[in-house]
């Protein structure tokens, strides 16, 4: 059998926007306030009373060709053989170049530790034979996790039988988070540019 290559399939049609994945992630990975490793993007189309809501669970794609790994100057960001992209917390210097390079805005600076972190697909749980905390928690089983190289795994079956999409395929990062039934508007950036002048981060002196 080929080597393991983990992937996640998110069936957006099942998602009820309960944020359980986000909460489970916060508890499992001790993600501080202000930052998120996984969250839901919710977009509303149309005016009341005919408004429709569309949701898109977001997390690091643990890409097949990750730009963050390529651009990290210290090799603190590295990729395991099973595809999980990790950040070595003892080596990262916090240059944030990986955050600037990642097309998905999924990395963050941990404000308590001043280190760059992201979703690692709970590699410690995987190594213990469990699934990631978000997958475990999801009450509607919208998240499926497994090995794409194993034809009998649940993700392989889903990938073989459903129409799937990935975020920003044109970026050549080969995302390994697949979406079923995601809305096109929710998958693209629909917001106005961030107004930098009103952000308090213009000059943030760090000590």
């Amino acid at each position: 059998m080929a080597e393991k290559r983990y992937a996640m399939v998110i069936d957006v049609r099942r998602c009820i926007s309960c944020f359980a994945c986000s909460v489970a992630c916060k508890a499992e990975m001790k993600v501080p306030l202000e930052v998120f490793a996984t969250w839901l993007k919710i977009v509303e189309k149309g005016q009341d009373p005919n408004a429709q809501r569309f949701v898109l669970p977001r997390l690091c794609n643990n890409c097949g060709n990750p730009i963050c790994t390529r651009n990290c100057p210290t090799r603190a960001t590295w990729q395991r053989e099973d595809g999980i992209v990790l950040v070595d917390q003892h080596r990262c210097i916090g240059c944030k170049y990986c955050i600037a390079s990642c097309p998905y805005d999924v990395r963050y600076v941990n404000p308590l530790k001043n280190l760059v972190q992201k979703c690692y697909w709970c590699h410690h749980r995987l190594d213990a034979g469990l699934v990631p905390a978000c997958v475990e928690t999801c009450p509607t089983r919208a998240l499926t996790f497994g090995d794409v190289n194993d034809p009998k795994s649940e993700v392989s079956k889903l990938l073989a039988t459903s129409a799937t999409q990935v975020l920003k395929k044109e970026m050549q990062t080969e995302p390994f988070v697949y979406y079923i039934g995601a809305d096109e508007v929710a998958m693209s950036n629909v917001e106005e540019e961030i107004n930098y002048y009103t952000e308090s981060t213009l000059i943030k002196i760090r000590i």
């Binding site: 969250w39 839901l40 993007k41 509303e44 189309k45 005016q47 805005d105 963050y108 600076v109």
Partner: peptide
Amino acid sequence: DINVVYNVKHQL
């Protein structure tokens, strides 16, 4: 009309 109800933006 498209409104983003919730999304996370990390610091620049």
